[in-house]
Write a protein that binds this DNA or RNA. Structure first.
Lengths: 224, 224
DNA sequence: TAGCTTTAATATATCGGTAATACGATGAGC
DNA sequence: GCTCATCGTATTACCGATATATTAAAGCTA
């Protein structure tokens, strides 16, 4: 039986494993809040929604478990991870600590191609309207590019994970929420400028401030 | 990383999910080097070895992927993660950085029950002969107990993961390797003493020295 | 003989079905 | 009226089988 008789628009998806597709899809839904925190993830229902068998779904859910986006309840299936103000504070704090390490190392090892890449992704981000869904993609790319010269893939993975955990709270707070009295673009520019100048102290300071400001805002929201 | 506080009752084996059992088993084999780095993990073969179906095995392998102990090759199955001197250095470095954060926070938040638990697990470790296989369990418990008062479960999880990645190299270097000119027990005692005294600086310094010494030894081994 | 194509063999990714287990509603017992 | 046991239903975890993809080997042109 042709599992994928449906010739997807462009068959780019075709070569990718089913598990991978489901993983990314679910991940996206959880991060953006389409699947709300705490909701049960029933394999049976997902089979219909995602149009695939139970195996890829279970596998994808296992992967998400390690990303802390899904919780596995022994013998009782899976559910989307819960959220709380405390949990958010933890993520924020840890993120600041790890990104400081990564950023310092990144700057100290930076070569010119890192710098060029950084400018490039920044440009892409600036060029994209904030309400465009791909803005988030570019935003993440920008923040990861800052760290990318850091020679520790494991650390980068941790940062990536924390980024997603963090951004989930942003989505949950509602994208409508804008940050008054702030010029986020300016903050990004300043961070980039300091990084390009190889001024680690300044870059770190600005980066952490950037996170803390956003964080402050979200903590208040989730406190209620 | 362990499914956190799994109450190891004797009859637990039966009630625990098959996936969990396979996960722990495989994890153990990879960490101890029974399954050598880079070796192919064929689902078909494992089915026989572990006496179970393909689903639990695939699921367990997915979980291990997130622990960085297994690599997934798109459409080409799984294999045990490769090792290298560089990789080890990365782990060591990151471990020092993260454990420093965790230990400082742990000490600053420590209550008397933390202290008691620490003394207890230390005692268990001391009491166990170094060549006893359970020594490693106690050794890990000791190191994790040091950090356990830290209020960040995510950070603890990272440390746990790094511990296992690190210890894998110890096993691979051969347990026969002993560290000349060192009194490891003394090192443990000193670390514990400093922690109990709530002397964070001393504890951190001794802990990192402890890791670096062992690390130095292993780097040399893997350099060749 | 080198290079390319086809074929065969091996292993992976996935599906459908089944037994076991947990949850919830119902009703007996106190 | 409330608690607890029981039964039916909803789900999960799992296995066997199938379809697909990758690799290796053999067969064919120039």
């Amino acid at each position: 039986m042709n599992k994928t008789t449906k010739i997807e628009a462009d068959d780019a998806t075709k070569s990718v494993s089913n598990t991978q597709r489901v993983y990314e899809d679910l991940r996206n839904r959880i991060v953006t809040g389409t699947i709300p925190p705490g909701s049960k993830l029933k394999v049976e229902s997902l089979k219909a929604t995602l149009d695939t068998g139970a195996s890829p779904i279970r596998e994808a859910l296992s992967l998400l478990t390690s990303d802390q986006l899904v919780e596995r309840l022994d013998q009782r299936g899976f559910r989307a991870a819960e959220v709380s103000a405390d949990h958010f504070r933890e993520i924020l704090k840890l993120r600041c600590a790890l990104e400081e390490i990564a950023l310092r190392e990144s700057i100290s090892l930076a070569e010119s191609d890192w710098e060029e890449e950084l400018v490039l992704v920044h440009h892409r981000m600036v060029r994209t309207p904030k309400d465009d869904p791909v803005f988030e993609t570019h935003h993440k790319a920008f923040h990861m590019a800052l760290l990318s010269a850091c020679a520790s893939p494991i650390l980068l993975r941790f940062c990536d994970q924390l980024y997603d955990l963090n951004i989930r709270y942003r989505y949950l707070a509602g994208s409508a929420k804008s940050y008054p009295k702030r010029d986020v673009s300016k903050e990004h520019e300043d961070i980039m400028a300091a990084a390009v100048d190889r001024d680690a102290d300044a870059a770190v300071s600005k980066l952490l401030q950037h996170y803390t400001r956003t964080g402050q805002f979200l903590v208040e929201h989730f406190e209620s």
